[in-house]
């Protein structure tokens, strides 16, 4: 979306009919935004994938990258759900070309994969990550972060070491639109 310039186009005057939008001149900005809609020939904003999360480094280490591939656990319904309505996900996390964990601190011996709720209230330990092999696990969160940490021990249920890789779920990109001026009474009138 950011590649497209906003052009303010005056709104045409319309006869008001029932069920029709009654435009106001100040809606020009809104109209201009329509040029950026995903079905507009001008724009196709990239949407994060539902089932793939690219993991990016938190430190300035060249070449660090990983990926979390999500899938649905077995379900006769096509959707695996918890009774309280969370989607259940199976995740396979892999990362290649990771340096020795000790690169990130003395005494660090292993990489561990975690999935945390976006508010970090709950954390699910997925398992120890072996470079070149996927680490599998399951979780059921709405908004979440996939994290790879370097740890001195692989046995804890919370991470203690530095975060090396992280990636956000597509659902994490949901934002509160009430902060946008166009939806909060701040539209130029």
């Amino acid at each position: 979306m950011q590649n497209h310039s906003v052009v303010v186009i005056p709104m045409p005057t319309e006869v008001v009919r029932p069920g029709r939008f009654r435009p106001r001149p100040a809606r020009g900005l809104v109209f201009a935004l329509t040029l950026l809609t995903p079905w507009s020939p001008l724009a196709h904003p990239s949407r994060p994938g539902l089932y793939r999360i690219d993991l990016t480094p938190t430190v300035a280490e060249a070449g660090l990258k990983g990926v979390a591939i999500l899938s649905q656990p077995r379900s006769p319904f096509g959707l695996a759900m918890t009774p309280d309505g969370h989607f259940r996900f199976r995740v396979a996390v892999s990362a290649n070309e990771l340096p020795p964990p000790s690169t990130f601190g003395a005494g660090l011996t292993s990489y561990v994969v975690w999935v945390a709720q976006d508010n970090l209230d709950e954390v699910t330990k997925i398992g120890v990550l072996t470079p070149g092999k996927p680490t599998f696990g399951e979780f059921a969160y709405n908004k979440y972060i996939v994290i790879v940490t370097a740890e001195s021990s692989s046995g804890g249920d919370r991470w203690k070491g530095p975060i090396v890789l992280k990636g956000f779920s597509a659902s994490s990109y949901l934002v509160n639109f009430s902060g946008h001026t166009m939806f909060n009474g701040g539209m130029p009138q």
């Binding site: 935004l33 329509t34 904003p45 994060p48 990109y173 949901l174 639109f177």
Partner: peptide, 10 residues
Amino acid sequence: TAFMAVDTMY
């Protein structure tokens, strides 16, 4: 249309 333009991420 304007709302949908920005509500497309998830």
